[in-house]
Amino acid sequence: MTAAMQAVCALADIPDGGSRGIWPNARGQHQAFVVRQGGQVYGYVNNCPHYDRARLGWKKDAFLNGPGDRIMCASHGALFRITDGKCEIGPCIGQSLRPIAVRVREGHVFTEPPH
């Protein structure tokens, strides 16, 4: 674990199959988010490749489509694979979300800062 990694939440704070916003800025906007699938947690910068500075979610901690099997950008509906952040359909098709390193240790989730 690199020194830059910081605890962002408990694993139990992310519903299994759900998502959570992390790294709020001074105005409370989440700069990154995590998605949990069982014990696996994936982290991405909260920036849609389609549009500079567009945040993905439509509500606090809501970053997934209905079935919960894709990350969704609520702006224009782009869908991204959870495991590698690649856009499969939408305005940024073929592009990817920027991943951030995530570690889960003793029930806590640590990530590097969004960059």
Partner: peptide, 29 residues
């Protein structure tokens, strides 16, 4: 209520309308 403000509030030039855009689960602003 926790919804994501996308752009606004502000006032457009063309049309002069005040605006405030929100992201939505319908995949559109």
């Amino acid at each position: 209520k926790g919804y994501e403000s996308f752009w606004g509030p502000g006032r457009h030039k063309f049309g002069s309308n005040w605006f405030w855009y929100f992201s939505s689960p319908l995949g559109t602003h």
